[in-house]
Nucleic acid binder design. Structure first.
Lengths: 205, 205
DNA sequence: ATCCAGGCTAAGCGCTCGCTTACAATCCTC
DNA sequence: GAGGATTGTAAGCGAGCGCTTAGCCTGGAT
C-alpha cells in the first residue's frame, strides 16, 4: 500500500493540511529560495487561501524552521544509525557516505532547504539546527580519527577530510534532479567508494 | 604598491563607483542572498543614495549578472589555464583542483554569489553563465576521460567523478570564512591530493 | 437540539520593495 | 566661459509583501 509523501516525510505532523503546507513550502523554498517565495505561493500550491498558513504556523519563518529541523533530524538519525551499525571505521564511513549521499539525492528538495536556506532562519531557530549540524560533523570526524588511529585511513588532516567527505554529499542537493540518470542508491554507492579512496582506506570495506 | 580590492576584482569596470557598488553587492548577496538584499542596502554600503545604483546598472538583476558573469569568467579562465599548463592528466587535474579550490576559498564571497545565486538571474542572463559552467565541467570531464584512456585514472564513471571533483571545490564557498585556520593555498593543495586519490591516480603527480 | 472548538476564507492594513522622475553639481571640450 | 555629458541626490510612485481581523462552516460532545 502506498503512503502519501507528506505522511512519509512528516508522520508526526497533524493535520494533513499542515503537511501539505510544508510540502508546498519545501517545493517553493527549494526552487526559488525562501526570500523569493511568498506566503501566497505556498498557500496557493497547497490549494488554500493565504491566511490558512497562519492557522498552522505562526509565521513563514516558523514553517521554514519546521521543515529545516525535521530535515536535519532525519539526516542526523541516518548518520547515527550508519555509524552504530558498522564494526570498523571503514565500513562505518562507507555506510555514512552511502546513506547521506543517497538521502541528499532522493530528498533533494528537502535537502536543498536544509543545506542552503538555513541562513534565513531567525537566530534562535538557527542555533537549533546548527547544533544538529555540529553533531553530524562530529560523528564523521570521530570516525576518521579512529580510522587514523587504527591505521585504516591515511590523511593529512581529519578535520579537512571530514569537510571534504560531507561536501560530497551536501553538494548533491545542489545539482541532483529527478531527471538524473543515476539512482540515489547507485550514486550513494559510487560516492562511498570515492570517499574511502580519498581517505586512503587500506581495506576496501 | 597596493591596489584596491575592487580594481583587482574588476579591472575593466569604470568608474570606481560602479566597482564599489559591485563590491557592496557581493557582500550583501553573499551574506544574505540576492532576494533578501535591497537596493538600499547595496547603495548604503557603497556610501551612496539608493538611486545611484541605477546610474551604473539598469536593475538590481543586472548588478547580480555583472558580478556573476565576471566571477564565472574568472573561474573558467583559471581552469583553462591549469589544464593548458599541465603535461599529463594527473598534473592537469591536480592543478585544476588546487586553483579552483583555493579560488573558492580566497574569493569565497564572490564564489558564494557565483555558485548559489545564479538561480536569481533572469533567463537570458542565466543562459550565459550556464554556458560558462558547462565549459568548466567539460574540461574536467575531458581530463578525467583522457586519464582513464591512458590508465592514469581508475574510476567507474567519469561523469560522476567530475561532479564529485567539482563539488569539492564548489562547496568550499559555502563553508569557508576569513576566520578559517587553513589558508586558501594550503586547502587547495590538500584537496588536490584528495582528488587524485579519489580518481585512483597511479602516479601521484 | 445546542454549542463550541478547530479549520478555513475574504478583505485589507501598514510597510517596504524596485525603480523613476526632476533636478543639481562637476568636469571636459572647444 | 558656454554647453553638453556624466555622475550624483531627494522625493516618491505603484505594487506586492507578511500578517491580522472578522466571521463562516463543519463535526462531535453533551
Amino acid at each position: 500500500m502506498t503512503v502519501s509523501l507528506t505522511a512519509e516525510l512528516w508522520p508526526d505532523v497533524q493535520p494533513e493540511t499542515a503537511r501539505r503546507l510544508m510540502l508546498a513550502g519545501v517545493e517553493s523554498f527549494a526552487r526559488r529560495g525562501y526570500h523569493a517565495t511568498t506566503t501566497r505561493d505556498i498557500a496557493g500550491n497547497a490549494g488554500m487561501s493565504p491566511a490558512a498558513l497562519y492557522v498552522h504556523f505562526p509565521s513563514k519563518a516558523a514553517l521554514l524552521f519546521a521543515i529545516s529541523r525535521s530535515g536535519h533530524e532525519q539526516a542526523l538519525a541516518l548518520v547515527e544509525a550508519a555509524a552504530n551499525d558498522a564494526d570498523s571505521p571503514a565500513t562505518a564511513l562507507r555506510q555514512i557516505v552511502e546513506r547521506f549521499t543517497s538521502w541528499h539525492a532522493r530528498r533533494h528538495m528537502v535537502a536543498r532547504v536544509v543545506q542552503y536556506e538555513l541562513g534565513a532562519l531567525p537566530d534562535r531557530e538557527y542555533e537549533v539546527v546548527a547544533g544538529l549540524r555540529r553533531r553530524i560533523e562530529q560523528i564523521v570526524r570521530d570516525i576518521i580519527e579512529s580510522g587514523l588511529a587504527t591505521g585504516d585511513f591515511q590523511v593529512a588532516d581529519a578535520h579537512t577530510a571530514a569537510r571534504a567527505i560531507l561536501s560530497l554529499g551536501i553538494d548533491v542537493a545542489r545539482w541532483y534532479s529527478d531527471r538524473a540518470k543515476k539512482s540515489p542508491a547507485a550514486l550513494g554507492q559510487e560516492y562511498g567508494e570515492l570517499a574511502l579512496r580519498m581517505l586512503g582506506a587500506r581495506t576496501i570495506a
